[in-house]
Nucleic acid binder design. Sequence first.
DNA 1: TTGAAAGCGCTAACAG
DNA 2: CTGTTAGCGCTTTCAA
Lengths: 329, 329
Amino acid sequence: MTTIRDVAKHAQVSVATVSRVLNQKGYVSKQAEEAVLAAIKELDFRPNAVARTLYNKSSRMIGLILPDITNPFFPELARAVEDIALTYGYTVVLCNADEDIKKERNYLEALKQKYVDGIILTTNQLSFAEVDKVGVPMVALDRIIGDQIPTVVSANKEGAEMATTHLIESGCKFIAHLRGPKGLATADDRLHGFRKVVEKAGVASIVGEADFYFEKSEQVTRDLLEQHPSIDGIFASSDVTAAGAMKAVNRMGKRVPEDIQIIGYDGIPFGEMLVPSLTTIAQPIYEMGATAARLLIKLIEKKPIEGSYFELSTNLIVRETTKRKEEIE
Amino acid sequence: MTTIRDVAKHAQVSVATVSRVLNQKGYVSKQAEEAVLAAIKELDFRPNAVARTLYNKSSRMIGLILPDITNPFFPELARAVEDIALTYGYTVVLCNADEDIKKERNYLEALKQKYVDGIILTTNQLSFAEVDKVGVPMVALDRIIGDQIPTVVSANKEGAEMATTHLIESGCKFIAHLRGPKGLATADDRLHGFRKVVEKAGVASIVGEADFYFEKSEQVTRDLLEQHPSIDGIFASSDVTAAGAMKAVNRMGKRVPEDIQIIGYDGIPFGEMLVPSLTTIAQPIYEMGATAARLLIKLIEKKPIEGSYFELSTNLIVRETTKRKEEIE
DNA sequence: TTGAAAGCGCTAACAG
DNA sequence: CTGTTAGCGCTTTCAA
């Protein structure tokens, strides 16, 4: 391994000078600079990131802790975060907490130990206190940890209202909502949006708990449908959940959208892969990730931030699992 | 931040002693040890990972470079790698190269700079020479970089043979294969397996290039079907590709499996989410990831390895996109 | 058993 | 403009 000393020797200058040209800081004569640059090239020298980190207490890395890398929503989010981070010269370290609070804790600790400059959390099992004491700039993404932590989410309640309204406009008379995990603010908000609309419209409704898992969703949908055969619309709280519902509907010999209309939530590419393709509320996934990344970087660089709570709006994508109103008239 | 010095002072011993108890190395009196342990607890001291890494030139991290985090096959693989690595006390750093050779190169360099102890590569755009000169223990997973690099793959050719045989036994007379990217050994092997079986059976066949992308697969399938309306079986080289084919078939007003039978390759949960659910060749994804991780760790720890090429066998999972032979008789 | 001190590779005072 | 030197926090000789 070639070090800054080797370069200094080779270029016949001191290590300080080499460091100066490396960091473009302080005065260096044209001549010295050239000698150093030449030596660097000749020796194929690359400054040791660990040594730098140790001294600077900064690694130009940001950690991204995901709850479940297996749910395609999160990889999408990760892509956006990575894109922006790279733009600003930060590397992102992906951590998969696997819905396990212990792993979450470990990663938080490990990242801090590695002197990451900041962390984006898409998990919220940890309490604010626990997260806060890590003492590294953080932003919460798609999950809410506390109002002390800058947060980026989508407009879950409005999205849910849109979804529910769409089902009603499409003629549904009895709508089931497959809600996400209890206590998860995003899931609760979607439920509230749903409730608000069905109540206002006086449409029959029921709620099942599907968390965000396919299998659970399939099972819950089946149970719901058995008990309430007149259900004709399902608002699933994620696209994966919607897929579970579709499967259940299909297994029970009913058709989508003829017998039962289904709308998902997320807007991941996955929805288009289904047959029939999934009508859904698209979150601005890329924008969410990008916003969180930019926000975190501002925090890191101690630049002013304009607000600490960003709620990005969603939009309805009508595909094949719901019928437009006109078609049923 | 509390350092080893603080602990030493607190415990009234030297930093060397603290280091000894931290690493359980060298002689330490019972008394000293207890004092140190107490001080550590009291001060909530955690050794600085970066400083350790700098000295040891080892970080107990392994890098995992994925080509496309958005294809659900890779997150599955990542989970397995993580599981095993954690077991052995290694942390894994996920890197998403995004099918971009530049990012791949950057990550390779960055990981080396961070003193990762080893790297698992699931990409192969880089040449052996380029990969080799990084000088960090490596294993290739699901991709082949060269016979100098220990490799873990599944039995692609056999898997493809099974898939094709299954379609023939299910009554297909004209089978299309949606192949993966040219030059990718796994994709080439699947093609060869396909060819071998159709030729031997004298079944009509055709090959389309779908890479591993949904959209491309949908388009290619559509083209193939327009030109050859008598195609009645499709062997897709990945589950995502199969989904694209299903979509195309559906769009063209044909039914799966009645008109066209489809079999995928991978065995990711995604296949079960489709309607009808996807018959597929399941790779032992978890085993693959686990094997690669164990192999790499042996390499890192300079333990003997039993072989440098591991080909794990696949197996057929019959679901709804193909019909059993009996049913068609 | 223990501690002093050198050094992992780099940065930044500070003095020249 | 440039070099010397003292660390960043930890590990490991080496001598006591």
